[in-house]
Design a protein around this nucleic acid. Sequence first.
DNA 1: TTCTAGTGTGTACACTGTCCACATAAGAAT
DNA 2: ATTCTTATGTGGACAGTGTACACACTAGAA
Lengths: 213, 213
Amino acid sequence: MVHRTARRKNGKPRRAYRHGDLRRALIAAGLALAQAGGPEAVVLREATRRAGVVPNAAYRHFANRQALLDAVRAAALSSLAAAMEAEFARLDCELAPVALAHARLRAIGAAYLRFAVEATGLFRTAFATPGEPPGGERGEGASGPFRLLSAALDGLVSSGALPAARRRDAEYLAWSAVHGLAMLVIEGPLHTLSTTRQEQIGERILAMVENGL
Amino acid sequence: MVHRTARRKNGKPRRAYRHGDLRRALIAAGLALAQAGGPEAVVLREATRRAGVVPNAAYRHFANRQALLDAVRAAALSSLAAAMEAEFARLDCELAPVALAHARLRAIGAAYLRFAVEATGLFRTAFATPGEPPGGERGEGASGPFRLLSAALDGLVSSGALPAARRRDAEYLAWSAVHGLAMLVIEGPLHTLSTTRQEQIGERILAMVENGL
DNA sequence: TTCTAGTGTGTACACTGTCCACATAAGAAT
DNA sequence: ATTCTTATGTGGACAGTGTACACACTAGAA
C-alpha cells in the first residue's frame, strides 16, 4: 500500500488516511516501549502517537490495550526464541552426541539469562501476567522457548545422558531454576552484583540443573 | 487518638478531621487491594477512599504511589516470612540434626510455594518491581524470607549435610529454583495443572535443589 | 492564650483507556 | 465510469488515575 495525501475540509493536507500497516506499526511501537520500560510502559496512546495516528485507530486492530500488550508479548517471546537459536548457531557441531546435548541445554539457559539481562524490558514483557488465562493455555505450551527446551531435554535422553525415568517434568524444573535466577538478577537482590559474579552464579545453577534432574 | 466530629461552613458534620492513624490505614487498604488484584491493583485513590479520606491526604504519609506500594510490599514480604515461620512451628523438633536441617529447608520451600498459590496477589506484590533500586539494596538483602533461607542453609552445613565448599551462593540457587517454579505456577504454563500435580512438581524441585547444591 | 507545625480538604491539570458518532477511502458491484 | 459497502482513521467525549498547589483546621508547644 502506498501512502497518499488528501485534503479535508479545513484545507490542511493529511498524510495517508489509510496507514497501510497500522497493526504492525503499533506492535513495533509497543515493542520499543516495552524494551525501554517493561510491560507497564507499553501504553496505547503513546503507541498510536508513534504510529502517527489518533488513539482510537488502535481499536480497529486490537480489542483493547491488553490485546496490544499480548501481541507485543508474543513478539518479545519469539525474540527470546531467536536469541536461543542464535546461541545454538555458535555451537560446535562436531561434538559427541552426549556433549552436544549438554551443550544445547546450557546454551538455552545461557541465552535465557543473557536475554534477561540485556533486554530486560522485553524479557519482563514476555513474561508479564496476561489478561486472559496465562500464555498458551491449550496445551501447546509457551510457543518458542519452551519447545526449544523440550527438544534439548529430549536430546539429553536420546543421547543417554539423562535416564528416561527422569525426563518427566524436566522442562519445568529447568525452566524454574533459570527463570527464577533471571528474576533475581534483573529485579531482585542479585541486581547489584557484578556481571562476572552473575555469570558465575548462572553457571552454578545450570550445573545444579544438570546434577539435580 | 479518638474520632471526633466537627462542622464546616456548609454545616455538614465531618468525622475525625484527624484520622489518627492514616498511614497504617492506607497500608492496610493497600494490602487488601494487593491481595485481591496484585501490585497494579493497589491504587492510591482507592486506598484513600477506603480509609475515608481525600486522595491528597495520602501525600502527607507517602511521597507518591510508589512509596505506598513499597510499604505494602514490605508488609506482604513479612507476611510471607510469617507463613514460613508458621511452617516451622509444624515441624517435629525431635528430629536428628541432619534430618531437621533438611526438613527446615523443605519447609521454607513448601511455605514459599503455598504462599504463592494461596495468596497470589500478595506474592506478586511482594516481588513486584520496585521503583528505586531493587528490594533491600544496602547489602542487608531481602529482609525476612531471605534471612530464614540463609539460616536454614547454615543449618545444613553445620549438621554436616552440605559440604561447606558448596555453601556459597546456595541461597541464590535455592531461591531461584523455588521462585521460578512459583512464577510458572501462578502465571505461567503450570497454572492450569491440578493442585496435586503442582505439589508433585514442587516436591521434585525441592529434591533437585537438595541433590544439585 | 497564642503560635506553629502537622494533617486533611478543594481545586486543578495532565495523562490514561475506552465509547460513540462521524468521515473518508479502497475495492466490489453495478 | 458510477455507486455501494465495508474497513479504517478522526473528533469529541467521559471516567478514572497520579500529583501539584493553595487553603483550612486542629493538636499540642510556647
